[in-house]
């Protein structure tokens, strides 16, 4: 009887699995591995009878007929595998951001009403964006920090737009575990460094949005934005 293990390849069942993955691709989900199994005793004789022909008909298991069949199985299995992969991709990709989500990339923010020392929070791509109007004192504090005092060293100049040092724009999501830090409203605690304070695990950010204390591993990220006029920015 022609059993899978008899083939020319020690792991022929893997290859023969190709023919099966054609089937698997199409919904049959039985295990490839089961092919190695001996039929249960009751069926042994039955299968021996019904399958003995292959060894008689196509010559020995190592004969030309068998290897031709194995090659066919291999190619068919590979093709079925490719097909299955091609089916899976559209399903996965459908869960990525859709075209309308990607297109809603930009918002405009009017800076006019924001007094020095105050900040506002706007929503961009579903995330809170802090826009803070810094006082002269706050700017100076942010600029005067030596980089060695920072766990995520970054100069203040790199986090603002040149000529607009009074405006700091950051994504208002703590880099630790995603809470929204306090500090944008005048009544909020701003932490020791006068920036933002995350109530979840006590991370503190300075007036440039850089992490100064607590478990947060990185500074608040600066979103892509540009000044359209002196009092208007476009985020995204």
């Amino acid at each position: 009887m022609r059993r899978v293990g008899d083939g020319p390849f020690p792991h022929e069942w893997l290859l023969a699995g190709g023919a099966e993955s054609a089937a698997a691709a199409c919904g049959h989900v039985w295990s490839v591995a089961t092919r190695r199994n001996q039929p249960r005793p009751g069926f042994e004789d039955m299968m021996a009878t019904s399958l003995s022909a292959s060894d008689h008909g196509a010559g020995s298991p190592h004969g030309e007929g068998t290897s031709k069949r194995d090659f066919l199985k291999l190619v068919t299995g590979a093709a079925a595998l490719v097909g299955t992969g091609a089916i899976v991709w559209p399903l996965i990709d459908s869960m990525n951001p859709s075209q309308d989500v990607l297109a809603l990339g930009s918002i405009e923010v009017n800076l006019d009403p924001i007094q020095a020392g105050m900040g506002i929070t706007v929503l961009w791509r579903g995330k809170p964006i802090f826009v803070r109007h810094r006082t002269e004192k706050e700017i100076k504090e942010a600029e005067d920090v030596s980089l060695s005092a920072l766990s995520d060293p970054e100069t203040d100049a790199a986090r603002i737009k040149a000529g607009h040092a009074q405006w700091i724009v950051v994504v208002g999501i703590c880099t630790h575990l995603g809470c929204v830090p306090l500090g944008n409203k005048p009544s909020d605690p701003r932490g020791e460094w006068g920036g933002w304070f995350c109530p979840c695990h006590g991370s503190q950010y300075d007036t440039s949005g850089r992490v100064r204390h607590g478990p947060a591993p990185a500074n608040l990220p600066v979103p892509p934005y540009a000044f359209e006029t002196d009092t208007k920015i476009k985020i995204g």
Binding site: P90, L91, D93
Partner: peptide
């Protein structure tokens, strides 16, 4: 129109 491969699915 907007979901990736949405038309196909």
């Amino acid at each position: 129109r907007d979901v990736n491969y949405g038309w196909l699915i």
